[in-house]
Design a protein around this nucleic acid. Structure first.
Lengths: 206, 206
DNA sequence: GTCTATACGTCGATAGAC
DNA sequence: GTCTATCGACGTATAGAC
Protein backbone atom coordinates (compact mmCIF):
# COMPACT_ATOMS: atom_id res chain seq x y z
CA UNK A 1 0.00 0.00 0.00
CA UNK A 2 1.01 3.59 -0.44
CA UNK A 3 0.55 4.56 3.16
CA UNK A 4 3.77 6.49 3.31
CA UNK A 5 2.74 8.79 0.51
CA UNK A 6 -0.76 9.24 1.90
CA UNK A 7 0.55 10.17 5.32
CA UNK A 8 2.97 12.71 3.94
CA UNK A 9 0.28 14.27 1.81
CA UNK A 10 -2.06 14.51 4.78
CA UNK A 11 0.71 16.03 6.86
CA UNK A 12 1.40 18.57 4.16
CA UNK A 13 -2.31 19.36 4.02
CA UNK A 14 -2.70 20.07 7.70
CA UNK A 15 0.50 22.05 7.63
CA UNK A 16 -0.88 24.15 4.79
CA UNK A 17 -4.12 24.62 6.66
CA UNK A 18 -2.25 25.82 9.69
CA UNK A 19 -0.13 28.19 7.63
CA UNK A 20 -3.27 29.68 6.09
CA UNK A 21 -4.85 30.12 9.50
CA UNK A 22 -1.77 31.80 10.87
CA UNK A 23 -1.42 34.14 7.91
CA UNK A 24 -5.12 34.94 8.11
CA UNK A 25 -4.93 35.81 11.78
CA UNK A 26 -1.95 38.10 11.20
CA UNK A 27 -3.43 39.89 8.20
CA UNK A 28 -6.94 40.24 9.62
CA UNK A 29 -5.53 41.79 12.79
CA UNK A 30 -3.34 44.12 10.80
CA UNK A 31 -5.68 45.20 8.00
CA UNK A 32 -9.15 44.18 9.11
CA UNK A 33 -11.63 41.90 7.40
CA UNK A 34 -12.57 43.94 4.34
CA UNK A 35 -8.99 45.08 3.81
CA UNK A 36 -7.67 41.55 3.56
CA UNK A 37 -8.22 39.40 0.49
CA UNK A 38 -8.23 35.64 0.24
CA UNK A 39 -5.53 35.90 -2.39
CA UNK A 40 -3.36 37.91 -0.03
CA UNK A 41 -3.72 35.34 2.72
CA UNK A 42 -2.88 32.53 0.33
CA UNK A 43 0.21 34.34 -0.91
CA UNK A 44 1.40 34.99 2.64
CA UNK A 45 0.92 31.32 3.47
CA UNK A 46 2.59 30.14 0.28
CA UNK A 47 -0.58 28.35 -0.78
CA UNK A 48 -3.15 28.51 -3.53
CA UNK A 49 -6.17 30.82 -3.03
CA UNK A 50 -8.55 27.94 -3.72
CA UNK A 51 -7.16 26.08 -0.71
CA UNK A 52 -8.24 28.86 1.62
CA UNK A 53 -11.85 28.22 0.64
CA UNK A 54 -11.40 24.46 0.53
CA UNK A 55 -10.06 24.29 4.09
CA UNK A 56 -12.16 26.93 5.76
CA UNK A 57 -15.32 27.08 3.66
CA UNK A 58 -15.34 30.83 3.20
CA UNK A 59 -13.41 33.95 4.04
CA UNK A 60 -16.01 34.69 6.70
CA UNK A 61 -15.52 31.37 8.49
CA UNK A 62 -11.74 31.68 8.33
CA UNK A 63 -12.13 35.07 9.96
CA UNK A 64 -14.25 33.67 12.77
CA UNK A 65 -11.76 30.86 13.39
CA UNK A 66 -8.92 33.34 13.71
CA UNK A 67 -10.66 35.55 16.23
CA UNK A 68 -10.07 34.17 19.72
CA UNK A 69 -12.74 35.38 22.12
CA UNK A 70 -12.19 33.47 25.33
CA UNK A 71 -13.15 34.79 28.72
CA UNK A 72 -10.28 37.08 29.54
CA UNK A 73 -11.83 38.86 32.51
CA UNK A 74 -12.89 36.01 34.75
CA UNK A 75 -10.48 36.95 37.49
CA UNK A 76 -12.09 40.38 37.64
CA UNK A 77 -15.74 39.45 37.25
CA UNK A 78 -15.33 36.78 39.91
CA UNK A 79 -13.51 39.09 42.31
CA UNK A 80 -14.99 41.35 44.98
CA UNK A 81 -17.69 43.72 43.84
CA UNK A 82 -16.01 46.59 45.60
CA UNK A 83 -13.69 48.34 43.17
CA UNK A 84 -14.72 46.00 40.37
CA UNK A 85 -15.26 48.89 37.96
CA UNK A 86 -11.71 50.10 38.31
CA UNK A 87 -10.25 46.60 38.08
CA UNK A 88 -12.26 45.93 34.94
CA UNK A 89 -10.84 48.99 33.21
CA UNK A 90 -7.37 48.23 34.52
CA UNK A 91 -7.54 44.71 33.18
CA UNK A 92 -8.69 45.98 29.81
CA UNK A 93 -5.89 48.51 29.53
CA UNK A 94 -3.00 46.43 30.82
CA UNK A 95 -3.47 42.77 29.87
CA UNK A 96 -2.35 42.51 26.24
CA UNK A 97 -4.47 45.51 25.30
CA UNK A 98 -3.23 45.72 21.72
CA UNK A 99 -4.63 42.28 20.94
CA UNK A 100 -7.93 43.13 22.58
CA UNK A 101 -8.20 46.38 20.65
CA UNK A 102 -7.27 44.74 17.39
CA UNK A 103 -9.89 42.02 17.78
CA UNK A 104 -12.56 44.54 18.76
CA UNK A 105 -11.73 46.76 15.82
CA UNK A 106 -11.77 43.91 13.32
CA UNK A 107 -14.95 42.31 14.58
CA UNK A 108 -17.01 45.47 15.00
CA UNK A 109 -16.15 46.61 11.50
CA UNK A 110 -17.04 43.19 10.13
CA UNK A 111 -20.30 43.00 12.06
CA UNK A 112 -22.24 43.46 8.84
CA UNK A 113 -21.99 39.70 8.82
CA UNK A 114 -24.62 38.05 10.98
CA UNK A 115 -22.15 35.37 12.05
CA UNK A 116 -19.63 37.93 13.22
CA UNK A 117 -22.28 39.94 15.04
CA UNK A 118 -23.54 36.82 16.80
CA UNK A 119 -20.03 35.91 17.85
CA UNK A 120 -19.51 39.39 19.21
CA UNK A 121 -22.74 39.25 21.19
CA UNK A 122 -22.02 35.82 22.64
CA UNK A 123 -18.49 36.86 23.56
CA UNK A 124 -19.75 39.86 25.51
CA UNK A 125 -22.35 37.62 27.10
CA UNK A 126 -19.82 35.02 28.22
CA UNK A 127 -17.25 37.52 29.41
CA UNK A 128 -19.48 39.94 31.28
CA UNK A 129 -23.18 39.13 31.59
CA UNK A 130 -22.96 35.49 32.65
CA UNK A 131 -20.42 35.95 35.43
CA UNK A 132 -21.62 39.38 36.53
CA UNK A 133 -25.42 39.39 36.41
CA UNK A 134 -26.03 36.78 39.13
CA UNK A 135 -23.60 38.52 41.46
CA UNK A 136 -25.08 42.00 41.35
CA UNK A 137 -27.35 42.91 44.24
CA UNK A 138 -30.33 45.16 43.89
CA UNK A 139 -32.98 45.54 41.21
CA UNK A 140 -32.53 44.86 37.50
CA UNK A 141 -29.23 43.05 38.01
CA UNK A 142 -29.05 41.61 34.52
CA UNK A 143 -29.84 44.90 32.83
CA UNK A 144 -27.18 46.63 34.89
CA UNK A 145 -24.65 43.95 33.96
CA UNK A 146 -25.47 44.53 30.30
CA UNK A 147 -24.98 48.24 30.72
CA UNK A 148 -21.57 47.56 32.23
CA UNK A 149 -20.74 45.63 29.08
CA UNK A 150 -22.01 48.55 27.01
CA UNK A 151 -19.65 50.89 28.81
CA UNK A 152 -16.76 48.57 28.10
CA UNK A 153 -17.77 48.73 24.43
CA UNK A 154 -17.64 52.49 24.60
CA UNK A 155 -14.12 52.55 25.95
CA UNK A 156 -13.03 50.05 23.31
CA UNK A 157 -14.59 52.23 20.60
CA UNK A 158 -12.75 55.29 21.84
CA UNK A 159 -9.31 53.70 21.91
CA UNK A 160 -9.52 51.02 19.21
CA UNK A 161 -11.75 52.55 16.54
CA UNK A 162 -12.03 56.29 16.94
CA UNK A 163 -8.46 56.32 18.29
CA UNK A 164 -9.17 59.40 20.37
CA UNK A 165 -5.65 60.69 21.02
CA UNK A 166 -6.59 62.55 24.14
CA UNK A 167 -7.80 59.28 25.65
CA UNK A 168 -5.03 57.18 24.18
CA UNK A 169 -2.39 59.46 25.60
CA UNK A 170 -4.00 59.75 29.01
CA UNK A 171 -2.43 57.76 31.80
CA UNK A 172 -3.93 54.41 32.67
CA UNK A 173 -4.40 55.66 36.21
CA UNK A 174 -6.67 58.49 35.12
CA UNK A 175 -8.76 56.31 32.85
CA UNK A 176 -9.04 53.60 35.47
CA UNK A 177 -10.16 56.06 38.12
CA UNK A 178 -12.66 58.07 36.08
CA UNK A 179 -14.14 55.41 33.87
CA UNK A 180 -13.88 52.69 36.50
CA UNK A 181 -15.75 54.73 39.08
CA UNK A 182 -18.43 55.48 36.53
CA UNK A 183 -18.87 51.79 35.83
CA UNK A 184 -18.92 51.14 39.54
CA UNK A 185 -22.21 53.06 39.84
CA UNK A 186 -23.84 50.27 37.85
CA UNK A 187 -22.22 47.61 40.02
CA UNK A 188 -23.26 49.15 43.32
CA UNK A 189 -26.80 48.92 44.59
CA UNK A 190 -28.64 51.84 43.01
CA UNK A 191 -29.43 54.55 45.55
CA UNK A 192 -32.63 55.58 43.84
CA UNK A 193 -34.05 52.51 42.14
CA UNK A 194 -35.27 54.08 38.91
CA UNK A 195 -38.27 55.34 40.72
CA UNK A 196 -41.90 55.35 40.56
CA UNK A 197 -42.56 56.72 37.13
CA UNK A 198 -39.92 58.91 35.63
CA UNK A 199 -40.82 61.54 33.11
CA UNK A 200 -42.05 63.30 36.18
CA UNK A 201 -39.82 65.90 37.76
CA UNK A 202 -40.56 64.78 41.27
CA UNK A 203 -36.98 64.06 42.27
CA UNK A 204 -36.41 66.91 44.63
CA UNK A 205 -33.91 64.98 46.67
CA UNK A 206 -31.30 65.31 43.94
CA UNK B 1 -29.74 79.83 -29.39
CA UNK B 2 -30.61 76.61 -27.72
CA UNK B 3 -30.93 77.99 -24.22
CA UNK B 4 -34.14 76.18 -23.55
CA UNK B 5 -32.57 72.81 -24.21
CA UNK B 6 -29.51 73.61 -22.11
CA UNK B 7 -31.58 74.67 -19.15
CA UNK B 8 -33.72 71.58 -19.25
CA UNK B 9 -30.65 69.38 -19.45
CA UNK B 10 -29.10 71.11 -16.45
CA UNK B 11 -32.32 70.73 -14.52
CA UNK B 12 -32.42 67.07 -15.42
CA UNK B 13 -28.82 66.73 -14.28
CA UNK B 14 -29.35 68.19 -10.83
CA UNK B 15 -32.53 66.18 -10.53
CA UNK B 16 -30.60 63.02 -11.34
CA UNK B 17 -27.93 63.96 -8.84
CA UNK B 18 -30.52 64.47 -6.18
CA UNK B 19 -32.22 61.19 -7.01
CA UNK B 20 -28.90 59.39 -6.66
CA UNK B 21 -28.20 61.07 -3.33
CA UNK B 22 -31.64 60.18 -2.04
CA UNK B 23 -31.41 56.57 -3.16
CA UNK B 24 -27.92 56.35 -1.67
CA UNK B 25 -29.07 57.64 1.69
CA UNK B 26 -31.96 55.20 1.78
CA UNK B 27 -29.92 52.17 0.76
CA UNK B 28 -26.89 52.98 2.94
CA UNK B 29 -29.14 53.36 5.97
CA UNK B 30 -30.93 50.13 5.17
CA UNK B 31 -28.05 47.89 4.12
CA UNK B 32 -24.91 49.64 5.28
CA UNK B 33 -21.92 50.75 3.25
CA UNK B 34 -20.42 47.44 2.20
CA UNK B 35 -23.83 45.91 1.56
CA UNK B 36 -24.80 48.57 -0.94
CA UNK B 37 -23.34 48.64 -4.45
CA UNK B 38 -23.00 51.59 -6.77
CA UNK B 39 -25.00 49.69 -9.36
CA UNK B 40 -27.82 49.17 -6.86
CA UNK B 41 -27.97 52.87 -6.06
CA UNK B 42 -27.99 53.76 -9.73
CA UNK B 43 -30.82 51.32 -10.44
CA UNK B 44 -32.88 52.67 -7.54
CA UNK B 45 -32.37 56.22 -8.82
CA UNK B 46 -33.13 55.25 -12.41
CA UNK B 47 -29.71 56.39 -13.51
CA UNK B 48 -26.55 54.91 -14.97
CA UNK B 49 -23.90 53.60 -12.54
CA UNK B 50 -21.30 55.82 -14.14
CA UNK B 51 -23.26 58.90 -13.12
CA UNK B 52 -22.92 57.99 -9.48
CA UNK B 53 -19.15 58.30 -9.83
CA UNK B 54 -19.39 61.31 -12.11
CA UNK B 55 -21.49 63.32 -9.67
CA UNK B 56 -19.99 62.22 -6.38
CA UNK B 57 -16.45 61.17 -7.24
CA UNK B 58 -16.59 57.82 -5.49
CA UNK B 59 -18.87 55.58 -3.49
CA UNK B 60 -17.02 56.67 -0.36
CA UNK B 61 -17.70 60.36 -0.92
CA UNK B 62 -21.34 59.72 -1.75
CA UNK B 63 -21.60 57.87 1.54
CA UNK B 64 -20.12 60.78 3.47
CA UNK B 65 -22.49 63.23 1.79
CA UNK B 66 -25.49 61.15 2.76
CA UNK B 67 -24.58 60.88 6.42
CA UNK B 68 -25.87 63.93 8.27
CA UNK B 69 -23.97 64.52 11.47
CA UNK B 70 -25.13 67.84 12.80
CA UNK B 71 -25.14 68.75 16.44
CA UNK B 72 -28.27 67.08 17.68
CA UNK B 73 -27.61 67.41 21.41
CA UNK B 74 -26.90 71.11 21.82
CA UNK B 75 -29.97 71.69 23.93
CA UNK B 76 -28.71 69.08 26.38
CA UNK B 77 -25.00 69.89 26.43
CA UNK B 78 -25.85 73.57 26.93
CA UNK B 79 -28.36 72.88 29.66
CA UNK B 80 -27.75 72.64 33.39
CA UNK B 81 -25.02 70.24 34.51
CA UNK B 82 -27.31 68.76 37.10
CA UNK B 83 -29.10 65.79 35.60
CA UNK B 84 -27.24 66.19 32.32
CA UNK B 85 -26.37 62.50 32.19
CA UNK B 86 -29.99 61.44 32.29
CA UNK B 87 -31.06 64.07 29.78
CA UNK B 88 -28.32 63.00 27.41
CA UNK B 89 -29.51 59.40 27.43
CA UNK B 90 -33.12 60.51 27.19
CA UNK B 91 -32.37 62.66 24.19
CA UNK B 92 -30.53 59.80 22.52
CA UNK B 93 -33.37 57.35 23.06
CA UNK B 94 -36.31 59.57 22.21
CA UNK B 95 -35.35 62.08 19.50
CA UNK B 96 -35.52 60.17 16.20
CA UNK B 97 -33.48 57.33 17.68
CA UNK B 98 -33.83 55.05 14.66
CA UNK B 99 -32.04 57.54 12.46
CA UNK B 100 -29.29 58.03 15.03
CA UNK B 101 -28.82 54.28 15.40
CA UNK B 102 -28.80 53.73 11.67
CA UNK B 103 -26.15 56.38 11.09
CA UNK B 104 -23.99 55.07 13.92
CA UNK B 105 -24.25 51.51 12.64
CA UNK B 106 -23.40 52.46 9.08
CA UNK B 107 -20.51 54.73 9.95
CA UNK B 108 -18.87 52.52 12.55
CA UNK B 109 -18.91 49.55 10.22
CA UNK B 110 -17.48 51.67 7.42
CA UNK B 111 -14.76 53.16 9.61
CA UNK B 112 -12.16 51.12 7.78
CA UNK B 113 -12.12 54.18 5.58
CA UNK B 114 -9.98 56.95 7.01
CA UNK B 115 -12.43 59.58 5.74
CA UNK B 116 -15.34 57.93 7.51
CA UNK B 117 -13.34 57.50 10.71
CA UNK B 118 -12.33 61.16 10.67
CA UNK B 119 -15.91 62.23 10.13
CA UNK B 120 -17.00 60.09 13.04
CA UNK B 121 -14.34 61.56 15.30
CA UNK B 122 -15.13 65.15 14.35
CA UNK B 123 -18.85 64.55 14.80
CA UNK B 124 -18.32 63.26 18.35
CA UNK B 125 -16.02 66.18 18.99
CA UNK B 126 -18.55 68.76 17.79
CA UNK B 127 -21.51 67.19 19.51
CA UNK B 128 -19.98 66.41 22.89
CA UNK B 129 -16.42 67.54 23.57
CA UNK B 130 -16.60 71.12 22.30
CA UNK B 131 -19.77 72.11 24.15
CA UNK B 132 -19.14 70.00 27.23
CA UNK B 133 -15.44 70.21 28.06
CA UNK B 134 -15.30 73.94 28.90
CA UNK B 135 -18.33 73.65 31.12
CA UNK B 136 -17.16 70.82 33.36
CA UNK B 137 -15.74 71.88 36.70
CA UNK B 138 -12.92 70.06 38.41
CA UNK B 139 -9.73 68.47 37.14
CA UNK B 140 -9.25 66.88 33.72
CA UNK B 141 -12.41 68.39 32.33
CA UNK B 142 -11.64 67.59 28.70
CA UNK B 143 -10.73 64.00 29.40
CA UNK B 144 -13.92 63.54 31.37
CA UNK B 145 -15.94 65.02 28.50
CA UNK B 146 -14.31 62.56 26.14
CA UNK B 147 -15.16 59.69 28.45
CA UNK B 148 -18.78 60.85 28.44
CA UNK B 149 -18.66 60.60 24.66
CA UNK B 150 -17.17 57.12 24.98
CA UNK B 151 -20.07 56.03 27.15
CA UNK B 152 -22.51 57.31 24.58
CA UNK B 153 -20.65 55.20 22.02
CA UNK B 154 -21.09 52.19 24.25
CA UNK B 155 -24.84 52.63 24.49
CA UNK B 156 -25.06 53.11 20.73
CA UNK B 157 -23.08 49.92 20.19
CA UNK B 158 -25.38 47.96 22.45
CA UNK B 159 -28.60 49.04 20.77
CA UNK B 160 -27.54 49.75 17.19
CA UNK B 161 -24.85 47.17 16.48
CA UNK B 162 -24.96 44.33 18.97
CA UNK B 163 -28.75 44.80 19.18
CA UNK B 164 -28.81 43.48 22.73
CA UNK B 165 -32.46 42.52 23.11
CA UNK B 166 -32.46 42.80 26.87
CA UNK B 167 -31.39 46.44 26.51
CA UNK B 168 -33.56 47.14 23.48
CA UNK B 169 -36.64 45.87 25.26
CA UNK B 170 -35.92 47.67 28.51
CA UNK B 171 -37.97 50.75 29.22
CA UNK B 172 -36.47 54.10 28.36
CA UNK B 173 -36.96 55.12 31.99
CA UNK B 174 -34.72 52.36 33.28
CA UNK B 175 -31.98 53.01 30.75
CA UNK B 176 -32.14 56.75 31.36
CA UNK B 177 -31.88 56.30 35.10
CA UNK B 178 -29.13 53.69 35.24
CA UNK B 179 -26.96 54.75 32.34
CA UNK B 180 -27.65 58.43 32.83
CA UNK B 181 -26.60 58.36 36.47
CA UNK B 182 -23.47 56.50 35.52
CA UNK B 183 -22.59 59.19 32.99
CA UNK B 184 -23.38 61.82 35.58
CA UNK B 185 -20.42 60.55 37.62
CA UNK B 186 -18.14 61.95 34.95
CA UNK B 187 -20.04 65.23 34.77
CA UNK B 188 -19.93 65.88 38.49
CA UNK B 189 -16.79 67.06 40.21
CA UNK B 190 -14.86 63.91 41.07
CA UNK B 191 -14.89 63.16 44.77
CA UNK B 192 -11.49 61.51 44.81
CA UNK B 193 -9.37 63.25 42.18
CA UNK B 194 -7.54 60.25 40.79
CA UNK B 195 -4.80 60.76 43.26
CA UNK B 196 -1.63 61.94 44.47
CA UNK B 197 1.17 60.98 42.10
CA UNK B 198 -0.60 61.93 38.93
CA UNK B 199 1.50 64.57 37.28
CA UNK B 200 -0.64 67.35 38.63
CA UNK B 201 -1.14 66.93 42.34
CA UNK B 202 -2.30 70.49 42.85
CA UNK B 203 -6.03 69.91 42.87
CA UNK B 204 -6.66 69.77 46.56
CA UNK B 205 -9.63 72.06 46.36
CA UNK B 206 -11.88 69.18 45.40
C1' DG C 1 -22.75 69.64 -20.51
C1' DT C 2 -25.33 65.33 -19.89
C1' DC C 3 -25.31 60.84 -20.35
C1' DT C 4 -24.44 55.79 -22.34
C1' DA C 5 -21.68 51.97 -23.47
C1' DT C 6 -18.02 49.54 -22.47
C1' DA C 7 -13.95 48.06 -20.34
C1' DC C 8 -10.25 47.29 -16.63
C1' DG C 9 -8.70 45.09 -12.62
C1' DT C 10 -9.95 42.65 -8.40
C1' DC C 11 -12.84 40.28 -5.52
C1' DG C 12 -14.91 35.54 -3.27
C1' DA C 13 -16.03 31.31 -4.81
C1' DT C 14 -16.44 26.96 -7.78
C1' DA C 15 -15.57 22.98 -11.11
C1' DG C 16 -12.77 19.83 -12.64
C1' DA C 17 -8.21 18.39 -14.35
C1' DC C 18 -3.91 16.42 -12.54
C1' DG D 1 -4.63 17.06 -2.04
C1' DT D 2 -3.53 20.61 -5.06
C1' DC D 3 -3.88 23.79 -8.76
C1' DT D 4 -5.69 25.96 -13.19
C1' DA D 5 -9.32 28.12 -15.28
C1' DT D 6 -13.17 30.51 -14.81
C1' DC D 7 -17.52 32.63 -13.04
C1' DG D 8 -20.36 36.63 -11.81
C1' DA D 9 -20.16 40.88 -9.25
C1' DC D 10 -17.81 44.61 -7.59
C1' DG D 11 -15.75 49.89 -7.75
C1' DT D 12 -14.01 52.72 -10.98
C1' DA D 13 -12.61 55.02 -15.33
C1' DT D 14 -13.15 56.82 -19.95
C1' DA D 15 -14.34 57.47 -24.89
C1' DG D 16 -17.69 59.18 -27.41
C1' DA D 17 -22.77 59.64 -28.54
C1' DC D 18 -26.38 63.13 -27.98
Amino acid sequence: MSEGATTSRAASASATREAIGKAGRRLFNRQGYAGTSVRQIAAAAGADPALVIRYFGSKERLFLETMPVEGRFDHVTNGPLEGLGRRLVASLLTESPELTFSIWRSMLRASDSELVRERLVSAMEEMFIVPLAPRLVGPHAELRARLVAAQISGLLDAVAILADERITEASDEQLIAFYGDSIQTLVDVPADPVGHDLGDPLDEQN
